[in-house]
C-alpha cells in the first residue's frame, strides 16, 4: 500500500536528524563508486538505469525518517542466540577433491587464481 497513515510514533520530518542524509538523492557518481566497491562494471546506459531505480527504492525507504526511533535498539536478528558453539569434535568432513572439482581452477590441492601481486591498483 502506497499511502502512509499517520501513526502515533510519527514526528515532523524536518526535526529528524536522520532525514537529511536519507533524503539525499543517490547520484550517478555514488552508484559508480558502489559498483566499484562491489566489483561490478556498469556500462554508461546501465549506470543511468540503475541510478534511477536505486533512487526510487531509496526514496521509498526514506519514509522511515518519519518514525521516532530515539532509544530503540537495532534488531539484528529475530532470535537472541549468541556465541553458538557445537561440541569440539571431528565430524564428517568435505572431501577436498569434491570441493576442488567444482572450482574454476585448481592445482596441487589448492584454488588457483591469476597473478595478485603487482597488479595495477
Amino acid at each position: 500500500m502506497s499511502k502512509r497513515r499517520s501513526v502515533g510514533r510519527c514526528r515532523d520530518r524536518s526535526a529528524d536528524s536522520l532525514g537529511p542524509e536519507m533524503n539525499d538523492r543517490i547520484s550517478k557518481d555514488d552508484v559508480e563508486k558502489v559498483a566499484r566497491l562491489a566489483l561490478l562494471h556498469l556500462e554508461p546506459s546501465e549506470l543511468e538505469t540503475f541510478t534511477g531505480q536505486l533512487a526510487a527504492i531509496l526514496d521509498h525507504a526514506s519514509d522511515m525518517g518519519q518514525l521516532d526511533l530515539s532509544g530503540v535498539e537495532p534488531m539484528t536478528q529475530p532470535v537472541p542466540l549468541s556465541n553458538v558453539m557445537r561440541a569440539d569434535e571431528v565430524g564428517e568432513l568435505l572431501d577436498r577433491g569434491d570441493v576442488l572439482a567444482s572450482a574454476p581452477c585448481s592445482e596441487d590441492g589448492q584454488f588457483r587464481v591469476p597473478p595478485v601481486l603487482g597488479e595495477p591498483s
Binding site: 566489483l39 567444482s102 572450482a103 574454476p104 597473478p115 597488479e119
Partner: peptide
C-alpha cells in the same frame, strides 16, 4: 568471486578476473 565456485571469466589479474 570466480575463485571457489562455478563461473570464472578469465583476465590477466585476479582483480580484473573477479570484476
Amino acid at each position: 568471486d570466480g575463485v571457489r565456485y562455478g563461473l570464472r571469466v578469465d583476465a590477466p589479474t585476479t582483480g580484473e578476473m573477479m570484476e
